[in-house]
Every structure is written in C-alpha cells, then in structure tokens.
Design a protein around this nucleic acid. Sequence first.
DNA 1: ATGGATGCAAAGGGTTTGCAGACGA
DNA 2: TCGTCTGCAAACCCTTTGCATCCAT
Lengths: 142, 142
Amino acid sequence: MGSVDEMIRLFRQRGLRITPQRRAIFALLADDASHPTAEEVYQRVRQSLPDISRMTVYNTLRELVSFGELLEVETDLDRAGRYDPNTSHHHHLLCLRCHALVDVETLPDDLDIPLPDARGYRIVRSQVTYYGYCPACQQAED
Amino acid sequence: MGSVDEMIRLFRQRGLRITPQRRAIFALLADDASHPTAEEVYQRVRQSLPDISRMTVYNTLRELVSFGELLEVETDLDRAGRYDPNTSHHHHLLCLRCHALVDVETLPDDLDIPLPDARGYRIVRSQVTYYGYCPACQQAED
DNA sequence: ATGGATGCAAAGGGTTTGCAGACGA
DNA sequence: TCGTCTGCAAACCCTTTGCATCCAT
C-alpha cells in the first residue's frame, strides 16, 4: 500500500469517509514490515486511540485487502491471518522458532521458477516461502 | 505417510491402539492426493463408518501430524487446514478459482532456490506455491 | 442532515479440551 | 482387567454479522 495521503485519496475517491481510526490504521500499516495480525494492529493502534474497537480494525483491514492495497498472508505455523502492505511481487522468509516473517525481493529471473509438470494448469504467479531460523533464534538455540 | 500396515505398526510401536476408526482414516489418507480438510476426511470416512465423530478424525489427524506422517498445509485462499500424506519435499499448485491443490515434484536442483538476501536467517528448506487455473476452471471461465 | 462508520454484542466456522462410557490390548 | 479411545458437549480462537449510535461530509 502507499502513503497515508494516498490511502486517504483512495478512500475519498470511493465515497468512503476518513475517520481518526482509519487514519491511525493507515499510518501504522504504511510504515510496517512486520506482517502484523489483526490483533496486533488492534493492540498497536490502541496506544494512540485507546477506545478503538477490534471491529473497526477488522473492517478497515478487509477494505484495504479488497482494494488490493494489502495482502493477507497465511502461514503453516499460525492460525491468524497476517497483513502485508508490500503488494509487489516478493517472497517470504519465515522463522520456524519465533514465526517472524520477513519479505525478500525476487530475483529478476525467478518470476518463472521451473515447473516440471504443470498438469494443464495455467500458472499466474509463484510464491516462495523460505523456512529457517532468524539470527536471534539461532543464538537462543544454544 | 506410508501404507495402512505401516501406520498400524507405527501406532502399535508407540503403545497406541488400532481401532476401526483409525484404520479407516489411515486407509483413506494413504490413497489420497486431494489434500482434504478435516471436515472432508470426516465426511468421507463416514461413508464406511457412519457413527464416527469429528473428534476422532481431529485426534487421529493431529497424531499423524505429530509423528511427521502427515503435513498440515495452509493456503491464502481457505481458512481450514488441509492435510497432505506426501511428506517428501515437493511444491504445490493451487487453483485460484476452485482451490484445488495439487502436488508437483521438485527439480533435482531446486532445493536451493536462489535467495538474494537471507538477512542472516539460516534457511532449512523452501517451498513454492504456484497459483493458477486448473484445466476445468480454464474451460469454465468462458 | 444524512448516510456511512463505529463499537457493542452475538453468531459463525474451525479446532481443542474435559470427561463418562466403551473397547482394544 | 486396564488404560486408552471414542464421541458428546462445551470451550476456544479468529473473524464476520446485526444493529443502535455517532459523526464526517
């Protein structure tokens, strides 16, 4: 997703209103690479808007996803969905111990990761998840 | 996971009992490449054992996962977990329309899909998800 | 002022837990 | 017989829905 101002423009364009809650959620996500869950977004935005409800967070996240400004990411390690403001083509690095999730850029030529047998599928895109251990967890393993 | 007999041996080895319910679940999964959800396993096994409960299905799936005989797969498209009896290293092909999930073999040399910047992570494995449209859904799109 | 947004409560889907009775070893 | 398994009910987590009130436009 883009900047707070871009999100405000987008919502206004669609006849949607700009509330303090939405503004706070935009500001939080525009500058976040941690792939927070809805609950984490709620807890963080609550520091500036203590009376915001989970519902508003869920609603705003769903709107951003439906506008293509936010990606919803599921991992094999956690049940709750996580949100990624980076909507360009990229891959993920997932820590098996602490479940930290990090974006990694794609290589220029990995848009077509070789596929031995596509079974007649028409492939649209591919996405790689690298599983491993983050620096902090490598240390902690001793 | 292996054959029904292998699963029976494994469970007995661990002091666990072989019930008709577990036998039926083993038989169903040993010969299934459709990546069923727990609910789908329940519905299918109910055809031979109408009185089985969902709980027994959930319990047995969880045991198989904990023994490393079954993989739990989450997709970005559905909320329910899906179960994969193929525990060897492989990738997935996911239909964006009907959500069919198919295994694809890895190439001999794709165990190390190039990673531009591992951020200090120690990588254990990588898994590719190809998104596209299955043959049936390509037809239906017209 | 007016219709969309908020936030409460309640419902929903998927999964886990607790426990009495059943049954495999 | 003994200890595990089954299956019911209830609880649990995450998310969505319904609705009266509120507020951005």
